[in-house]
């Protein structure tokens, strides 16, 4: 463990459809169960609304919709991952979140070219961990999207 320190990236791994995504653990505030979401009118369809997160009104983004996947019904394993970036705090609806993984720096590769170009924008890279393939998300790109600005 110690010999890898500094070259490892601790990430939270979550699932969307059949793929596994990862967010650096520093950017994750908490993982919550799904609670009542209040819809906010006239926002992009991936903005599900807002929830009351211990007294703080927090916007919720459905990552499935955001990534162009079909919506899924909320199940027992559905989670909301609260992430924070600068002054922004939002929650992501994901199918499941149940793993914390240390990724060695040399396991991270840049996003493969064949991927959809629109997605490459908010993907930092791909980490190969044995049989698993983890997609590393870039929150800056994910949260500073143009679509929301258009919605204004």
């Amino acid at each position: 463990m110690t010999e890898f320190q500094g070259t490892e990236l601790k990430v939270i791994v979550f699932q969307l459809k059949d793929e596994e995504y990862a967010i650096p653990v520093q950017q994750v505030r908490s993982i919550e169960k799904v609670q009542h979401i209040t819809r906010v009118p006239r926002t992009p369809d991936f903005v599900k609304g807002v929830i009351n997160l211990r007294g703080v009104v927090t916007p919720i983004i459905d990552l499935r919709t955001r990534f162009g996947l079909e919506e899924a019904a909320i199940s027992e394993s559905t989670r909301v991952i609260i992430v924070t970036l600068d002054e922004i705090e939002v929650g992501f609806i994901v199918d499941a979140a149940n793993d914390v993984v240390d990724i060695p720096a040399d396991a991270i590769e840049s996003a493969p070219e064949v991927m959809d170009t629109a997605q490459v924008d908010y993907i930092n890279g791909v980490a190969k961990m044995g049989k698993r393939l983890l997609i590393l998300l870039n929150l800056e790109k994910l949260l500073n999207n143009q679509e929301l600005k258009v919605a204004k």
Binding site: T38, V47, V56, E89, L148, K152
Partner: peptide
């Protein structure tokens, strides 16, 4: 009064949100 946070700025005709007695958010 609560703000909608820094992500949802300038939502049309919504100036903020509040938390009701039942814990739900109302706009």
């Amino acid at each position: 009064l609560k703000s909608l946070g820094n992500y949802l700025t300038n939502v049309f005709a919504i100036s903020g949100a509040t938390i009701l007695g039942d814990g739900q958010v109302a706009l």
